[in-house]
Simulated scan of single mutants.
Amino acid sequence: MTAWQSIPLIQAEFLAGRAEPRVVTPRGDLAADEQATIALFEQARGSVVFIATTERLFNPWTRNALQVPRGTGSGFVWDNLGHVVTNDHVIAGASGATVRLADGRAFNAVLVGTSPAHDLAVLRIGVGAGRPEPLPIGTSHDLRVGQKVFAIGNPFGLDWTLTTGIVSALNRELPTDTGAVIERLIQTDAAINPGNSGGPLLDSAGRLIGVNTAIYSPSGASAGIGFAVPVDTVNRVVPRLIAQGRYIRPSLGIRTEEQLNAALSARLGIQGVFVLEVEPGSAAERAGIRPARLGREAGFQTGDVIVSLGGRPVRRVADLLAALDRHAPGDAVSVTVLRDGATVDLNVTLDAGR
């Protein structure tokens, strides 16, 4: 007889009469931050979708074309017209996609447009009654490191998963497989895994502030560093994709940097976009826009500061990009710069950007 069988029969009968469920300790109300997180998820969940892509393969022996599963990802409802936003790399190379809503309904999607340079794509589904609400749109130019963020998506096919974290850095750059560089990315420590791509990154008010796009991980799983395309970029690019099916960047051919621009504006009391560099042969060089200079004796010297483009005031880099997006490559626009304390009006013919 083993130790597990050594309780005397009379003692076992005595204990059996007293073997009852434990008394449950009342929990009380959920903490305020828990209630807020639950409310945010329940409100946003219906606007997040599961995307499954397929690929057409040709069998040379049977001469049959087959649709086979290719991958999965996430997306979210953009507007009331059935447009869904996701990452370009989620649907790149696919021949078809199915979009599944939180209520279980599934729809075949039509590709509206893509912008590989921003890793963004727009699909359209034919939703009739019971159309999901679009996510509210926030801003990203005023994000601060340390803000709480919430990511909803379908990692590893585990649908409608919520992870939380903070904004851990801003203005990151990430090269893509095509050689392009995605700029001004939000870095977060919210767990983002394969399948989260294309899903929304939300702030504590439930507003869209980014589109989860990639992770940095040697293992392929979340290592605490994820990236999201900022919503200011999304809100510029997506309307152009819906209207035209593609996005070609109009370009001045200058280099700017958001954080440095904010620091210079605060230090010098000048609202505008400081031109750090001018690309050779660019629209800016042809128009005579002057970059900043760095000398041994004088140190950093500001060049031109762009204060308006096309008649629209420019106070920060996001304003400049938004003003540019109202135009197309080849357009002639007026640019007003602050130069040596005086305003100078220039005429610039925009180039096609990357």
Results as ranks from 00 to 15, higher is better:
5 Q>F: 08
8 P>W: 05
34 E>L: 13
37 T>K: 01
40 L>F: 09
40 L>W: 07
43 Q>E: 15
46 G>Y: 03
51 I>M: 09
53 T>C: 12
53 T>S: 09
54 T>F: 08
56 R>A: 14
59 N>K: 04
65 A>H: 05
66 L>M: 14
66 L>Y: 14
67 Q>W: 01
74 S>I: 12
75 G>I: 11
76 F>Q: 02
77 V>W: 05
83 H>R: 04
86 T>C: 05
90 V>C: 07
95 S>L: 03
101 L>K: 01
103 D>N: 13
105 R>C: 13
106 A>I: 04
112 V>D: 01
115 S>V: 04
118 H>F: 10
118 H>S: 14
134 P>T: 06
135 L>F: 05
136 P>N: 06
137 I>N: 07
140 S>K: 02
141 H>W: 09
142 D>T: 12
143 L>F: 02
143 L>Y: 01
147 Q>E: 14
156 F>Y: 15
170 L>I: 11
171 N>R: 06
173 E>T: 14
183 E>I: 00
184 R>V: 04
186 I>L: 08
193 N>A: 00
195 G>F: 02
198 G>L: 05
200 P>W: 06
207 R>G: 06
218 P>G: 13
224 G>Y: 10
234 V>M: 06
240 R>A: 11
242 I>C: 11
243 A>M: 03
249 R>Q: 13
263 A>R: 15
271 Q>P: 00
280 P>E: 13
282 S>I: 09
292 A>P: 02
294 L>G: 00
296 R>D: 13
300 F>M: 08
319 D>R: 03
323 A>M: 03
325 D>E: 06
325 D>N: 13
325 D>C: 03
336 T>W: 00
337 V>M: 10
338 L>T: 03
340 D>G: 13
340 D>Q: 14
341 G>K: 11
343 T>A: 14
349 T>A: 12
